[in-house]
Design a protein around this nucleic acid. Structure first.
Lengths: 178, 178
DNA sequence: GAAAAAAAACCGTCCAGGTAGTATAGTGAA
DNA sequence: TTCACTATACTACCTGGACGGTTTTTTTTC
């Protein structure tokens, strides 16, 4: 069993630990146990803790990029398909977001430079969003509002009710097409 | 010297360390040195690391609440003064934001329950914002967009240019009065 | 208002426990 | 034989917190 799978299992285990137990509990041993690997096995794949966190970030950046790209490719709109896809994925996809949160927090804690792949991602998206056929300021506001949802989920600070969240989502959506 | 001042100096020192060196470098010793106090002295004021982080969060929550309240009190608008104040303070006040970032990250790392004062704050604001005389969905979107700015500053992920940021700010502002 | 007592605000060291990373010897599958 | 691990032991280091002082400030008493 396990080809490139093991590596990814380890990454999931690490994310899970960060999400559920916090960054201070992301130790090599805990990660190994959670992933069902020996410590030696973990270090075989990721030779240091920093490498592990880098793995987390790289992996989720790749995933997120694919997700958005797939949504864009599916879209039949001429205008606003990037911002629309960004909002769709972020509002409706709890899965990659959870991993994103864990990865961001871990990277910020361990070494901010590890966030570079995320920065690249954001820069790419911002460019697409601004060239998306709608007013760039409006598009930027929609992106920021979407990020706001993200922030509140990241810190579990203030969850809008499902209904209000839906209303916000619909209003943003309508605004794109306006 | 030092009445209640010392405590606050220690809190600033802790925030500074988190901002500049990351959470893993927030040790009692480092904080003591940064604040110019001995470790024993620090532990006199904050008997544990968790107490220190709790101190950070409580302090910044109080500060932020005051800042917004002051801005609201100054406002002469009848409609939308809460959301306007929230946007104003967040867009234009780099200082409390920096401390907020540090406090949030530290609390999230040490013990998520420490974020409760922030949750209370957000709940209060959301109530005010929704009763602010403008469409609550619109007001919520403005709040979220403002939080989006915050997120990008927190992780240093994507800084809008000053000009675009200003355009966003103005558009949101106009939207409130529309 | 000075001396004495008490409380507050510190200082600096020590230690048990935990952690990243190294080392090494071995195993089963392809 | 190589790859992808397991299992265990070990080192070197760091950190939270306890603890036992000491100094400064405040309060009380005479």
């Amino acid at each position: 069993m396990a080809r490139a799978t093991r590596k990814i299992e380890i990454l999931h285990a690490a994310s899970k630990i960060v999400s559920e137990r916090g960054i201070f509990n992301l130790t090599l041993e805990a990660t190994a146990i959670e992933a069902g690997v020996s410590k030696g096995g973990l270090l075989y794949h990721f030779p240091s803790k920093e490498a592990l966190v880098k793995g987390m970030v790289d992996h989720l950046a790749e995933n997120y990029r694919d997700k958005i790209a797939a949504s864009v490719a599916e879209s039949t709109k001429e205008k606003g398909k990037w911002i629309q896809s960004y909002a769709d994925v972020t509002f409706n996809n709890p899965y990659p977001n959870k991993e994103m949160h864990a990865g961001l927090l871990a990277a910020k804690a361990v070494n901010s430079d590890l966030l570079d792949p995320i920065r690249d991602l954001y820069n790419e998206w911002q460019i697409q969003i601004e060239q998306d056929g709608i007013d760039p300021v409006k598009a930027t506001i929609i992106r920021l509002a979407t990020d706001g949802i993200w922030l509140s989920e990241l810190f579990d600070i203030h969850h809008l009710g499902e209904q209000r969240k839906e209303e916000v989502y619909l209003k943003l959506k309508n605004w794109i097409d306006e």
